[in-house]
Design a protein around this nucleic acid. Structure first.
Lengths: 155, 155
DNA sequence: CAATAGTCGAGTAAAATTGTCGGATATAAA
DNA sequence: TTTATATCCGACAATTTTACTCGACTATTG
């Protein structure tokens, strides 16, 4: 299963974009600062997001990115697929040459897992994440209802 | 998300074990031949499976491995966890220092994904895989009801 | 024209994964 | 007791993937 930090960063960045996109394009420099993701890396990610038709860009001063459609119509699955290319669990990648040229004994299992994971991520939209973020601004789940008090991590 | 060929091989090997375990211990050499997994690699995997209390070993000639309990009480989730150590999706590994020392905006999302994947894999037992294997010996799912005729893919 | 901001491809360093090797231990059978 | 079978174990090597940088370029604004 391919689900790496790249996919996580992409979702985080898209969430930032959705939350700050009210007044004009959002610059990668801004996302970089707020989310602490390197600018160069963001450029790479947004290249893929743009090619995946999830965001649109505006060049030149005052430019930046905005969502290609409403946040309620962008799913997490789309974001992850756009940057990670695939979240396939089978080793053969859909082909069925896993074991001596025919599908291996566990092929179906991994294929069903794919379906499960994809279904889950497809059921969650950016709008839902934004909403969740607005109602519960910061940490809330695991005990500690402390608001902000973050001790800066070393570097 | 960590779900690699190691986990897939482990499930395949366990399935082989379950299917050939009727008459005494099964040797890794046998599994190696049938499933085309290198013996050395199997040794490594079964070390973990044994420490995870999924299999028991019998040393010496005539020895080998057998399941530690009935196949109906061994889940795929257990197997994958035993060899891959974890199939966590969060980058912080449960800790919540993902973003400047507090949980990142998408933390809950990945945690729910974990739950989903784990729940799926936990719902499937070795016995179910064996059964499926016995009723449908070879390929069947995707269209083509052709028995065997596989065009060898390049290499 | 100068500054801003996206675009692109190549390239690199670190980490993870996959897999091997050599030798040790336990046990059964000859 | 010797020999052959098999598991056991740690260290290590090769490969692949991942994460991330860099430099040069294009478009747009003022």
């Amino acid at each position: 299963m391919r689900l790496t930090t790249k996919g996580r960063f992409a979702v985080t960045a898209m969430l930032d974009l959705a939350m700050h996109g009210a007044d004009g394009p959002v610059t990668l420099a801004g996302i970089s600062e707020r989310q602490k993701i390197s600018l160069s890396y963001l450029e790479q990610l947004f290249g893929k997001l743009r090619r995946g038709n999830l965001v649109e860009s505006v060049r030149g001063p005052g430019g930046g990115y905005h969502l290609a459609r409403d946040a309620s119509r962008v799913t997490v699955a789309e974001i992850v697929c756009a940057v990670d290319e695939s979240l396939d669990s089978t080793q053969c990648g859909g082909r069925e040459n896993c074991h001596e040229n025919h599908r291996c004994m566990t092929h179906d299992l991994w294929e069903e897992l794919n379906t499960t994971v994809y279904g889950f991520l497809k059921g969650i939209t950016l709008a839902q994440l934004v909403e969740k973020q607005r109602t519960k601004p910061v940490s809330l789940v695991r005990g500690q209802p402390r608001p902000h008090e973050g001790q800066p991590i070393s570097a």
